[in-house]
């Protein structure tokens, strides 16, 4: 009963260099939460201090952005692939 999670380059040092890791199936929130229990150093880069998924952390189920599915509650079926895809933002001081 597991799913595959693809880890983007900037976060691979926290998964021992692995590009893909396994996690327990569930919904998106549950899979990511289980992932950060296995790899605690990932947590601060995926979630804010309030425990909310950071806005520039994008999660894809297969090729679909979960924001266009059911967000954090999107079910991730056994054997599915979840990808964490970073977006990047910033800019000069206001």
């Amino acid at each position: 009963m597991s799913v595959t999670v693809r880890i983007p380059t900037p976060l691979r040092p926290y998964t021992g260099g692995k590009k893909e890791v396994s996690a327990q199936s569930g919904d998106v929130e549950g899979v990511l939460s289980a992932l950060t229990q296995s790899y605690p150093d990932l947590r601060r880069h995926l979630f804010t201090e309030q425990g909310v998924l950071r806005s520039f952390v994008n999660v894809y189920l297969g090729d679909e952005d979960v924001r266009f599915l059911n967000g954090p509650k999107t079910p991730v079926p056994d054997g599915a692939q979840l990808s964490i895809v970073p977006s990047v933002a910033g800019g000069v001081p206001q």
Partner: peptide
Amino acid sequence: IIGFFHSHPDHPARPSETDREFAWPNV
């Protein structure tokens, strides 16, 4: 992917607070 680049028009080439908030480590 080993990094990202962007311009700071009419500002120094130093990261801003927003750059830090939305950045990633190791790149």
